[in-house]
């Protein structure tokens, strides 16, 4: 790959002599990304190791902010947030994969496919809060579901745990993050040449075997992307847990908001650093999980023809 050199590249080359040639052609982007994203992140992590109040910071290194975080019930918070996010991501994968498979390969009717796309995208025209609040009137004590249950005699009293509970939070996440899981998998699967499926069939594999040996490995990039795009934003979600859970189910990012609300920036920074740590751990997990099939590189390299 020939790299076109510009004046910018020359400067970069002088400063960082040992990076491979391909980087030079991305120099502009890299600088912006580094300056705009990486440096602030590092700043946050750095800050969390100091003391202070509000925005006054004393430069004495300490773990105090982290101690505070954990003393505010932080470990529960962490455990709960990760547990819920992991559970939902798993469930989404189980639901979204067959759905994406059907949409990409099974659905012959273009009209149906078009309508499905629309149904998946339209909710995003509403604000996240608006999408979620609607469920309150459905799951509430006097809501539609309860009315139906009472009318059919399934229960004697309205069911209270449908809303402001973990059930509600799970439900809210499930709906909100379904498209983020479906889209990458759908794209990945639609890129699978039908020839491969036919060849697999022709060679003696029934549908299930074709799914396992051909479709799934080739859809793996989409699956990985889907998992990443679902799990990580879910950790950062502030809307669903609050509105569906009524503050009964506290999640990480809501906590950051409330800390910032009282100018407790340092503990918020510590919390942010912890979240970053979780995301890193998650990436490591992903990397390790993909090792048996050749690692992350391989998974995407399979798209090479």
């Amino acid at each position: 790959m020939a790299a076109t050199l510009t004046a910018n590249d020359d400067v970069m080359r002088r400063l960082l002599p040992r990076l491979p040639a391909g980087v030079w052609s991305l120099s502009g982007f890299t600088v912006v990304w580094f300056g705009g994203i990486v440096i602030p992140l590092l700043a946050i992590i750095l800050v969390s190791f100091f003391q202070g109040r509000g925005i006054r910071i004393n430069l004495d290194p300490t773990f105090l902010q982290y101690e505070r975080f954990f003393s505010y019930g932080g470990s529960d918070l962490l455990a709960r947030s990760v547990r819920i996010a992991a559970t939902i991501t798993f469930i989404e994968l189980m639901i979204a994969f067959p759905f994406a498979l059907w949409l990409a390969k099974g659905c012959k009717n273009n009209m149906v496919r078009l309508l499905t796309f629309t149904a998946l995208t339209v909710p995003f025209f509403l604000s996240p809060a608006a999408r979620v609040i609607v469920w309150r009137s459905v799951f509430g004590i006097n809501g539609v579901v309860n009315q139906a249950l009472l009318a059919t005699g399934a229960v004697d009293e309205p069911v209270t745990w449908l809303i402001f509970s973990e059930f509600a939070v799970h439900f809210g996440f499930l709906g909100a993050f379904f498209p983020t899981m479906v889209w990458p998998i759908f794209l990945s699967i639609s890129l699978i040449d039908n020839d491969f499926l036919e060849a697999s069939n022709d060679l003696g594999a029934n549908r299930f075997r074709t799914l396992v040996h051909v479709i799934f490995p080739l859809a793996l990039p989409g699956v990985v992307a889907g998992i990443v795009f679902t799990f990580i934003p879910m950790l950062g979600d502030t809307v669903v847990a609050q509105h569906m859970g009524g503050n009964n189910v506290l999640m990480l990012s809501a906590q950051v908001q409330s800390l910032i609300g009282v100018s407790n920036f340092l503990v918020a920074a510590a919390l942010a650093a912890v979240v970053l740590g979780i995301m890193l751990a998650f990436q490591v997990l992903l990397w390790a999980a993909l090792k048996p099939v050749g690692g992350l590189n391989e998974v995407f390299a399979n798209l090479r023809r």
């Binding site: 505070r68 505010y72 503050n247 009964n248 506290l250 100018s263 407790n264 503990v267």
Partner: peptide, 15 residues
Amino acid sequence: NLQEMQAQMDRVLNA
């Protein structure tokens, strides 16, 4: 003690 108070309230919400 604004921050401590909020922290305590967070403890309540976390429980």
